[in-house]
């Protein structure tokens, strides 16, 4: 059983890599890029949501916001631990950026990342209050399920496993948001609808451009399977159903 097979062929046929030692240079780079984006987005998401704890109108909401803040940081750490296996200095990485920093509410952040911070562009926009935080959490939460679900099938098995563990908790975060939104849809309809209008295009952008060379490259490595536009449309359909049930769209 000593038959050799080029690693590119192995990956193209659905093979899995299982440790940093297996990863060829380009695979290593793309994988680290994906993991960084996840870590930075979870850290920025957690840091941004921390303020929502004090906006929470009641204890139940306060607990939900605390849990989301806590668990997103935990998810970041789980993936950062995998990056450490590639040489990433974990302690320095955690301090590399101001995760709570946000840009102005209006204006447009280029969805292509700028600088060293890999968070998705949506995490550069500030939340304005409880209703806004709940809406953003529902919309981005369901987008996260599609994006993380996609990566949970990726060819780097340790990441796929970590993300399969993360998925049910991310789903719970979205559901907690949905419970909050159901209450707000009755009492704060106007504000909630305004937040939906604000966040929809910004969340939609996180799926990336419709046609992407990078996607083709990642697909050849088994790191991606479903293209950006397909994921975005699935999310749109799902979100439209949710919002129309709440009469918010």
């Amino acid at each position: 059983m000593t038959n050799e097979m080029p690693i590119g062929d192995y990956l193209a046929q659905g093979g899995r890599l299982t440790s940093p030692e297996n990863a060829p240079p380009r695979y290593r780079a793309e994988l680290l890029r994906l993991m960084s984006s996840f870590v930075d987005s979870e850290l920025a998401g957690s840091a941004g949501f921390a303020a929502a704890i004090n906006w929470a109108p009641g204890i139940r909401e306060r607990i939900a916001a605390s849990r989301i803040t806590l668990e997103k940081a935990d998810h970041a750490e789980r993936v950062l631990d995998l990056m450490e296996g590639f040489g990433t200095d974990k302690a320095l990485y955690e301090r590399a950026h101001d995760w709570a920093a946000r840009g102005p509410r209006e204006g447009h952040v280029d969805p292509r990342r700028q600088g060293g911070d890999m968070r998705l562009s949506v995490f550069h926009y500030p939340l304005t209050g409880w209703t806004d935080a709940v809406v953003m959490n529902v919309l981005m939460g369901s987008a996260t399920l599609h994006a993380v679900g996609e990566l949970a099938a990726c060819s780097y098995q340790p990441l796929a496993e970590v993300l399969r563990g993360v998925l049910p908790r991310e789903r719970r975060h979205m559901e907690l948001g949905l419970e909050g939104l159901e209450r707000l849809a009755a009492t704060e309809r106007g504000a909630a609808a305004a937040s939906v209008a604000y966040w929809m295009p910004r969340v939609a952008e996180t799926f990336g451009p419709a046609g992407s060379d990078r996607f083709d490259r990642l697909r050849a490595m088994g790191l991606r399977h479903t293209d950006n536009e397909t994921l975005r449309q699935r999310w749109r359909a799902e979100t439209a159903a949710t919002l129309s049930a709440l009469k918010l769209a």
């Binding site: 780079a29 680290l32 890029r33 960084s36 990433t88 890999m118």
Partner: peptide, 30 residues
């Protein structure tokens, strides 16, 4: 479309190999 992430010498996403010539690396934590 060169790979990179932290741009602070911490994460190692941008690792490359010098085949010819000389460079100076300012920071290397990875």
């Amino acid at each position: 479309d060169a790979p990179y992430s932290c741009k602070a010498g911490v994460c190692s996403t941008c690792r490359a190999k010098v085949l010819e010539g000389q460079v100076e690396m300012e920071v290397n934590h990875a």
